[in-house]
Design a protein around this nucleic acid. Structure first.
Lengths: 238, 238
DNA sequence: CGCGTCATTGAAATACTTCAACGACCGTGG
DNA sequence: CCACGGTCGTTGAAGTATTTCAATGACGCG
């Protein structure tokens, strides 16, 4: 999270501080564009950023999601191979590319930090490959909800997924679909089904109450027939 | 490819050379195991290694494929989050973890190289996310064949995908299925269909003659109805 | 020769998509 | 204030790609 500052010598910190500035993006605005050399490296202060790729036929796939504390852009990277778009109102701390590259080149600690950063992202990407390749729509949806819960609970007192929780979805249905590799209709239907089963209930479109996180996790690691009999027996009232 | 040596000072090169040794793995043998701290970092000399994750329900997904010149394992990484298995007879150049970490910690150039390495891998992973999330079985198969062609042609005189080419598939049907997020039957059928359309023809199960690379690329970036009429018209003889 | 693994093929089942219609929400302008 | 159009989400019905189940064929090996 705040590892960058930890990795920086005082002199560098001051140097970076003096050239950085805050910048806001409204939902939908592009931060980096696929095929262009990103002019910056930035830390997300608040909001959610989606990193997406698009196919010639026009369909999109979100390949990564970033929130407060995450970093965008890769020093020495050349052209960005995906587009970064603000999924909500986003505030970033913005560093000119050149400065970051100079500081990085000079500091071993920063290099270490950067390496960690990319390695983590790779790990997440590989998880996602697994998810996209081998999970059903239902499982994908469950993973998504759980990950939003986890993100929301990050740093909160209770580390375990609590017994009940209200979460705000950071993405529209269309974006969720692009994230999970599904269509918007399938996403909608999966949510409806979870609601019918009383696993979640929805107020506003964007906010969801998760009643049974345990059922979500059960769905995620269920063998293909997703344990309906057992789970339904548990939750249907007599 | 040989970037590691370029990044190393002579002293380090000697040091590494003296502790490295060659090691062979037979097809199916595990090189690193998910959940264990890998005892080594190694360069693949020959053969193909698959990196896979498995779901509780037993299904597998290959999250990466590595060939000669690629590197396995991440210094400072902790537990491996995927299993690396030899997909064929594999020969590696093996370095004890401790040595690699010492050398890396000391050398900025090695850090840079390592960073590049991971960043490249991340880029490939994101491509794969796109593929798994948004492509049809037919497109996946085409991408796979093209990537095998590219790997085979690597460093060859003609850089462009040639007009006709014989390739050896480095994976079994099951492995291809795990790689593309499909079932073995679907893979088999897609190959059969490509054969019927005279895009490829097959000798041995593991070897394929690609007659029309252009059709494969057309399939990859076709909008959903994969242009059958046009393409078929081109290739069917009068 | 017979057994085991791997690949192919067919037929039926199903998960997901596509197409299409409708309802809810929201800001704009009358 | 209310009607209007636009975007977004939901829902139904039909279509299709892919999976599942099952049987058969090809190959290698003891």
């Amino acid at each position: 999270m705040k590892g960058l500052c930890g990795a920086l010598a005082e002199a560098d910190l001051g140097r970076l501080g003096s050239v950085s500035w805050h910048r806001r993006f409204r939902a939908g605005e592009a931060i980096h564009v696929e095929g262009e050399v990103p002019p910056s490296f930035c830390a997300i202060v608040s909001g959610v950023v989606k990193l997406s790729k698009s196919l010639p036929n026009g369909s999109q796939q979100i390949v990564g999601l970033f929130g407060a504390g995450d970093f965008l852009g890769r020093p020495f990277g050349g052209e960005a191979r995906a587009t970064a778009v603000a999924a909500s109102e986003v505030e970033v701390c913005w560093f000119p590319r050149a400065t970051i590259e100079t500081v990085t080149a000079a500091s071993g600690a920063v290099k270490d930090w950067l390496y960690e950063q990319v390695a983590d992202e790779l790990e997440k990407a590989q998880e996602w490959i697994m998810l996209l390749g081998r999970m059903t729509a239902e499982q994908k949806m469950a993973v998504f909800l759980l990950s939003v819960m986890k993100a929301a609970a990050d740093g909160k007192p209770a580390p375990a997924p609590a017994r009940e929780m209200v979460i705000e979805l950071p993405l529209s249905r269309t974006e969720i679909a692009d994230y999970l590799g599904l269509t918007i209709e399938t996403v909608s239907r999966q949510i409806a089904r979870l609601r019918e089963r009383h696993v979640i209930s929805a107020g506003n479109t964007r906010s969801v109450v998760v009643h049974r996180p345990d059922v979500l996790t059960a769905i995620v690691d269920s063998t293909r027939p997703p344990g309906y009999p057992v789970l339904v027996a548990n939750q249907v009232d007599a």
